[in-house]
Design a protein around this nucleic acid. Structure first.
Lengths: 339, 339
DNA sequence: CACAAGTAGGCGAACGTTCGCTTAGCGCCC
DNA sequence: GGGCGCTAAGCGAACGTTCGCCTACTTGTG
């Protein structure tokens, strides 16, 4: 049981005192800079390890003006896709010797607290993965003029680099696949209306229809809110409205699972009575009944790439905004009749 | 396009210069300490906001000897359970004004790099959520004598507080439930053998059998390695070995999904031919076919509670190790014949 | 009117680093 | 043998804070 102020750590001065040199010389040795004779160097290193010296990055970054830490603002770490993104990003940061400070922004709030909290800590850059901030002009404004930033989602006013995948292509590939299977009445269960991803994937869906001369029918579009339950309800409504429908493209796999569930309840066989295609390719997709055809979205790689871009911006001091799109591809499984 | 050293931020000195006072006075105002006249106070605050002053926590923590940051070592952020834990922990930390620095320790490696990296940043405490470090004596040794730490898993040598749920009870509840449904030949698909969770849940399973005077049969135990595919294989082996089996308890929901999948392939009906019970209560559990009976494990609350404990240890400077167990409960669904 | 008691603000030091300049000592060469 | 150049090490300053102590001015009081 220990009380009061935290114990002092061993500092360069402690090491220096024990080695009989000035603390600056110790610093030189520890950083491999300057010229120090082999014997004192050895002695200092010896003492440092004996004393269990651990450098204080706080102090170092104070003079260096760089913390070698980046901030990560995410909406929900337990979201499957986002968490893959985070794993990729963290790993890349660690590889390059950067620490990652996380903050989540709750669903309702606009993340006003998140940014200042990271700025106080003087992170060298910020990674954004909170789609609900898509329209957050205040945050965008701050970002544009303070630290390098890379975002997974759109940032109003531009000026911030973006790494993601081609959502329109995603919708296009999914819908094309269904058309190639002979379907003519293809419905789509979409995510939250306000989101850009939703609109992009919907655009891809429409483009695929156009390509094949199929008409767009608003009655074949329904809201799934990215959630299982809502997607189930959407499926039921779609069937009431358009009984002739033979395929459904869900804008993500979670909703696709809801669609499968609803179809089962309605007594429809998949893919014979109604084919289903999802989006994202979560791990579970290979193990639904039947296994889900989906479009693979490389979240892990996106995270890694975003972090790579961010760190390179930090390193070069460049602020010229990039826009990187990673490739997506269809993974055909049984829910659409396979390959 | 900006090159070279990062731009200097506004400091108290800048604010002071513009307000015509010493920087120490500025500091007093900004912290609400000392006595400063109302008019100068107002002036200083005005200037601070005009200049967009953001305090530098690095410098502050240097003198305060506390970073108000905690480290989080996790094995895999994309693991569903772990990510719930993290969400709970991060939220609680944020509520109390602490930042969270994450590091993941890769499957193979022993996390030797993770600890020093956090120590260099002088985190005030460490949260551990990397079950693969259960037997990491080196790390444990370091932890015991440096910073306050709370762990989700066992730490060799004790001395580190632990927050988790009662895994033995989990196994007990699941198995009891199946017994109460009249099952007599109950198999179990277990996680990685070396892990304590695995052994605890297995112990619960055995205790439930004992309670009811049922024999323990090693042939009814098989390895699922926490994974879908492996659990599928385990299920097939179990049926070859013990065709009389009528129920399976999987040590987590992911494996339970594999079990369901395998049963379907074998042409078995659930729960009529074989009942299934899982563990953890992931979101998907309510939407499998049929919906999965499982034991709810409160990962979110565990994370929040662990962080709460850690922060209180930091605040009081206490280091006396606690051991907190959070309650679990059965959630009966169709895969075991419901309530 | 002198003196105690407050109030407003200044000042030096410290936290643990890095960086650049200075200095002492030494061998070498012309 | 005096100047050159090199190596080893020291020293002061700075980074942006907080903290405790000191000082000068303003009041109030007997």
């Amino acid at each position: 049981m220990r009380l009061g102020r935290p114990a002092r750590h061993v500092s360069v001065k402690d090491v220096a005192a024990r080695s009989g040199v000035s603390f600056q010389t110790t610093s030189k040795v520890l950083n491999g800079k300057g010229s120090v004779s082999a014997v004192t160097r050895a002695r200092i290193l010896r003492v440092a390890s004996d004393l269990g010296y651990v450098p204080n990055l706080q102090a170092r970054s104070l003079v260096m003006r760089s913390t070698r830490a980046v901030g990560l603002i995410a909406s929900d770490f337990s979201d499957h896709n986002l968490s893959r993104f985070i794993v990729g990003a963290e790993r890349e940061a660690r590889r390059q010797g950067y620490a990652v400070v996380i903050t989540s922004v709750e669903e309702g709030s606009s993340g006003e607290y998140a940014l200042p909290a990271l700025m106080e800590r003087r992170v060298d850059g910020i990674l954004l993965a909170a789609p609900q901030m898509e329209e957050d002009h205040a945050a965008a404004h701050v970002l544009q003029r303070t630290v390098p930033a890379v975002s997974l989602h759109h940032v109003p006013g531009g000026g911030v680099s973006t790494v993601g995948s081609d959502h329109e292509l995603t919708g296009l590939l999914a819908t094309r696949h269904l058309i190639s299977k002979g379907h003519r009445h293809i419905a789509t269960v979409i995510g939250t209306r306000g989101r850009r991803v939703t609109q992009s994937r919907l655009r891809g869906y429409r483009r695929a229809l156009e390509e094949s001369g199929l008409p767009f029918d608003a009655g074949l579009v329904d809201d799934g809110q990215w959630e299982i339950e809502a997607a189930m309800a959407a499926t039921r409504r779609l069937f009431e409205r358009r009984p002739e429908m033979t395929a459904i493209f869900a804008q993500n796999d979670t909703m696709a699972i809801g669609v499968l569930s609803a179809l089962r309840n309605l007594g429809k066989r998949v893919p014979d009575d109604c084919a289903v295609v999802g989006c994202d390719d979560i791990e579970m997709a290979a193990h639904t009944v039947p296994p889900l055809t989906t479009v693979h979205v490389p979240f892990y790689e996106t995270g890694a790439e975003a972090m790579r871009l961010l760190l390179s911006m930090i390193a070069t001091g460049s602020v010229a905004p990039h826009k990187v799109l990673l490739p997506v591809h269809l993974v055909a499984r049984a829910s659409s009749g396979g390959k």
